[in-house]
């Protein structure tokens, strides 16, 4: 039954909240990946560092930057401050803010102020400036800024329809990003040695976990014995880690259920069904089976399902046709 006391939400507002959340999640993910990349390569020579940067760049969809001359300072400058680069942190935060700005009366003032502060801080910094100081500290502060925004969101905004659109946006983005990150690492893991790609070391798996802020949580479950199958199991199938794909799928499904309860939408079934199927496949997944089959195809399928859920949400709530809405 639709909740008749709830005020309906403009489709555009839902769209803005969803993308605000996705863009901020993307910016945070990039900040995290850059910070651990810096940490890992800071004491390596360019020959060692290069394949690692190539992998990280591929994981955040910015392979085009991975040319021969790419070094840490150029990569971080471009992915952090280059407003022309759509993958850069500054672009993502500006997009998150532009979306938030269009729904200022929907989100709490505290949320807007926090997002605006993060934006003004990134705008006021420059690559030269952070390399003068401590670059890793800069990314740390950025992550904290994004976490604070999430905390403020949970503490100050009603947990109604809009909040669930924020949740769905965040976890769809996270599920896709984590799947991609796993994919880039396991493609190397499974590649035949003959291709000459440096084999992954212990250190690389730790980096992967840290890129998902999951190293400590991993150690609590598996101890510091870092093995690729355990890493895959943890980041894909763990039911409690907020960074695992399964956890994200669960939140997406719950969010969509809550949204369809509050809107009573007649077209919501498809998005919920797709999200439920993704969640269930992860609930009952076995890491040994996944790794025995084509893991790349498996991870790719997860990302495709995320895309299908996104499309179904749009069809149900945002870009539905006027004819279908008027004809009762």
């Amino acid at each position: 039954m639709p909740d008749i006391t709830a005020k309906p939400m403009l489709s555009r507002v839902a769209d803005n909240l969803y993308w605000m959340s996705r863009y901020l999640e993307r910016a945070e993910h990039t900040a995290r990946v850059l910070a651990v990349g810096l940490m890992q390569t800071i004491d390596q020579n360019p020959r060692q560092a290069h394949p690692r940067w190539t992998r990280l760049l591929e994981a955040i969809g910015a392979s085009s930057l991975a040319d021969e001359e790419a070094d840490a300072s150029r990569i971080t400058a471009s992915l952090t401050f280059d407003a022309e680069n759509p993958h850069s942190i500054v672009s993502c935060i500006a997009s998150a803010r532009a979306n938030a700005r269009q729904v200022r009366e929907q989100i709490s003032s505290e949320m807007w102020e926090q997002l605006n502060r993060v934006y003004l801080r990134v705008r006021a910094s420059s690559a030269a400036q952070i390399w003068q100081g401590e670059p890793i500290e800069f990314y740390q502060r950025l992550k904290e800024g994004a976490h604070l925004f999430q905390g403020i969101t949970d503490a100050t905004m009603s947990h109604g329809e809009g909040w669930f659109f924020i949740q769905v946006g965040r976890y769809l983005e996270r599920a896709g990003a984590t799947a991609k990150l796993l994919d880039t690492h396991f493609q190397v893991y499974f590649a035949p040695e003959a291709e000459g790609i440096a084999l992954l070391e212990f250190n690389d798996w730790v980096t992967l976990l840290k890129s998902c802020t999951a190293f400590e949580a991993y150690c609590k479950v598996y101890t510091a014995d870092v093995q690729p199958p355990s890493v895959a199991e943890f980041l894909l199938l763990d039911s409690e880690s907020p960074r695992s794909v399964r956890f994200a799928a669960d939140r997406i499904e719950r969010g969509l259920q809550a949204i369809s309860r509050s809107t009573g939408s007649r077209w919501a079934g498809r998005a919920e069904r797709l999200a439920g199927r993704l969640r269930a496949s992860l609930d009952y997944g076995q890491v040994d089976e996944i790794m025995a089959e084509d893991m790349h195809a498996y991870l790719d399928a997860i990302r495709r399902q995320c895309g299908a859920i996104h499309a179904a949400i749009y069809q149900a709530y945002i870009t539905y046709s006027v004819e279908s809405a008027i004809v009762q």
Binding site: P2, P8, M9, L10, S11, R12, A14, E161, I259, S262, T263, G264, S265, Y317, I318, Y320, V322, A325, I326
Partner: peptide
């Protein structure tokens, strides 16, 4: 539509 103004919401018009 038919000289009535609607807004597009997530719960329909």
């Amino acid at each position: 539509h038919d000289s009535v103004v609607y807004m597009r919401t997530t719960a329909g018009l």
